[in-house]
């Protein structure tokens, strides 16, 4: 016999009449901020200049989504540090109510970690994998370098730091080893095959010993979602509204993560300022924010330009510094 139960329509938002909102969004925000906060579905890019109330905007948007009836668990907020996410959610909770504390928030790395702990067996890891920091990763490189007897050669072979740097950069920037060597380490071009060998063994080593380095957290997240349609669908369906802060300082793997996460919907808002991109040395690429409208067609761009922090004299100097930028 068939069993009949009732459930709420999937993904449906309550239609809340503006007058019923607890928060007076229109009065508490300026025009651009209000537009950002109330733009819900589809891709949005918020260009937030320094001191223009970026955090405030994110906090209000979290509250707005929750007021609309989106389940807090279905909202994902990715930030540059975990402290930033905690702070924003704390402020949203004060602004609206404690529901906002249940919003999922963290860094790309901590978010990947939480998903990987659930599904690590699908990509050949046990759940109790440990994480190698940069120093540990370099030590492993050294171990392999010695094991392959590259330490006793006549010619100079890259040191462990260089081996790791080459590895991490080729992963983060998705550039080939040949490219990176040609640009920065011309003198090691001849050793390319041997460097590749070290990197291969390094990759094997991590799997055999149930460890991941920082890049692996992102790389394996993408691998997991790419190779497993059910996990991809489940994850994307779960996180229905995604926000990313400091988008100008994300790397290529993170941009890829965003695409995978939004594949069931396009409800993504990234916030950032291309003029404040300062993490290229760690593999971040300003291209992510510049190319966002191409990566997400139909994207709506909103600019926050009213500054609440500095005097006009200070802003004049800042504006002038940017004006002389080389295009």
């Amino acid at each position: 016999m068939k069993k009949y139960t009732i459930k709420k329509p999937a993904g449906g938002l309550h239609i809340v009449h503006p007058q019923k909102f607890q928060i007076d969004y229109k009065n508490e925000l300026n025009k651009a901020q209000y537009d950002a906060v109330t733009s819900i579905n589809d891709p949005h890019l918020i260009i937030a200049g320094a001191g223009t109330g970026k955090t405030r905007t994110i906090v209000y948007r979290v509250a707005y989504l929750v007021e609309l009836g989106v389940k807090p668990e279905h909202i994902l907020l990715l930030t540059f540090t975990r402290k930033a996410a905690q702070e924003m959610l704390r402020r949203a909770s004060i602004l609206l109510d404690h529901r906002c504390e249940r919003v999922s928030g963290g860094t790309f790395h901590s978010f990947s970690n939480s998903i990987l702990r659930k599904y690590s067996n699908l990509i050949g890891y046990e759940r109790n994998f440990t994480i190698l920091d940069q120093g540990d990763a370099e030590d492993v490189m050294n171990l392999i370098r010695t094991r392959l007897k590259f330490d006793t050669r006549e010619r100079r072979f890259p040191r462990k730091e260089t081996l790791y740097d080459l590895y991490s950069r080729s992963i983060n920037t998705k550039a080939s080893l040949t490219e990176i060597l040609t640009i920065d380490y011309q003198h090691y071009l001849e050793d390319e095959q041997d460097i590749r060998k070290v990197h291969e063994l390094y990759t094997e080593y991590k799997i055999t010993h149930n460890t991941m380095d920082y890049d692996d957290l992102l790389l394996n997240f993408n691998k997991l979602l790419k190779q497993n349609e059910p996990v991809r669908a489940e994850t994307s369906n779960h996180f229905k509204y995604i926000m990313v802060d400091e988008y100008q300082d994300t790397n290529k793997l993170q941009a890829e993560m965003v695409k995978l996460l939004t594949y069931k919907h396009q409800n993504i808002m990234v916030v950032g300022d291309d003029s404040q991109a300062i993490y290229a040395f760690r593999g971040a690429t300003i291209r992510n924010i510049l190319d966002f409208p191409d990566d997400f067609p139909g994207c709506n761009v909103i600019k926050l330009e009213e500054n609440y922090r500095s005097t006009q004299s200070i802003l004049n100097v800042a504006n002038e510094i940017l004006k002389r930028a080389i295009d």
Partner: peptide, 22 residues
């Protein structure tokens, strides 16, 4: 490489002029 486009913006404020930076 040149950037294909940048998001132009000019920051402004309602705060006072203030002291000149030195």
């Amino acid at each position: 490489m040149t950037l294909r486009h940048k998001y132009s913006k000019i920051l402004f404020t309602n705060k006072s002029e203030g002291n000149l930076p030195q």
